[in-house]
Write a protein that binds this DNA or RNA. Sequence first.
DNA 1: GTGCTACTGAAACGACTGTTTCAGTAGGAT
DNA 2: ATCCTACTGAAACAGTCGTTTCAGTAGCAC
Lengths: 192, 192
Amino acid sequence: MMSAASPPESARRDELLERAYEYVLAHGLAGISLRPLAAAVGSSPRVLLFLFGSKDGLVRALLARARAQETELLARPPGEGGAAAAGLRVWTWLAADEHRGLLRLWVESYARSLIDPVGPWDEFARETVDDWLALLAAAQPASIRETEAAVAERTLVLAVLRGAMLDLLATGDRERTTRAVRDCLVPLRRRS
Amino acid sequence: MMSAASPPESARRDELLERAYEYVLAHGLAGISLRPLAAAVGSSPRVLLFLFGSKDGLVRALLARARAQETELLARPPGEGGAAAAGLRVWTWLAADEHRGLLRLWVESYARSLIDPVGPWDEFARETVDDWLALLAAAQPASIRETEAAVAERTLVLAVLRGAMLDLLATGDRERTTRAVRDCLVPLRRRS
DNA sequence: GTGCTACTGAAACGACTGTTTCAGTAGGAT
DNA sequence: ATCCTACTGAAACAGTCGTTTCAGTAGCAC
């Protein structure tokens, strides 16, 4: 009944997961398959299945690994100064070159979870919206946090960040997208 | 050398394309395969291959079909009043329930083209950014259209629309997302 | 009738998928 | 030496994939 749960901790598992994660950042998650992946990380399909239980288990572990990197940012003290100020800080993180692969993976998983609501992606899109809205909420003064205006402000800040990120991923134009984000968020910052 | 180009026009082809398009709006483009698709549209893999040349050809035709529906909106007179005003009009189109499937398909294709720069998706992401920026540019007064501020305004409007759309697709919360879009674009409207 | 074009069905091809079966090997504990 | 756990290699399984091969059928032109 336990359906072949994989050993959740193991040095070898961690090592292969890390290498698989790098592979996935470069090649995406959609078209992945065990044999090429195993060859790239210096292992075999047999071992990956042994360590992760199934392909789904591997994908789940990879998504968790990606989320851990995202949480790096989320866990940092969100700071104060309102959602707009927090949004500006988040943007410098999003626009950094070294996060490009992670963000591509993020978009891919988001899209996938919109279409295929079953499988390892599950509620990825909805969860991640909630994660980020919560981060922005934490930056708002507690006294107004539950007002409709505050909710709308968070939603707006998140939308601008996500939309600019999509643009940046497609065009690579950091200057133009950064200017747009600043034009929106800097004036907004005064009010909180 | 002609690599089996498919007959580009044919009544039967149009009919099957239309039905395949409906199937794709419901099931997504990523995990598509000929046999289930053929069964769903009342045909066979053999016929789809005959009419579209290859699976890639079919996908390309489906993307073109989707783009045609999008162009419906793009072709309408963009109107004046600046990019923000145009953005507000576009949002009512984006937020309409009957476009949900198309937008999911859009996100999926966008994500795919970021990762897999070869194949039918090709430059989909970049092209679509340019399409929409051009639409918004057309709504700006010609006199300021080429200024940096105008470029930034277009970029911002597009980012808000895209980001809010992502939120809407994941949460279905039209009220909250619409409020965010309005909060951003209505004040912006005065200035042009 | 013959010929031509458009379309279709059935079956097979080779390549690839996730997964399983069986048979190990290396290392440490007892 | 024995046992146990952790890991691994090779091969096969059943299934799906896009595509091809071969053999048609229906309709219209002449």
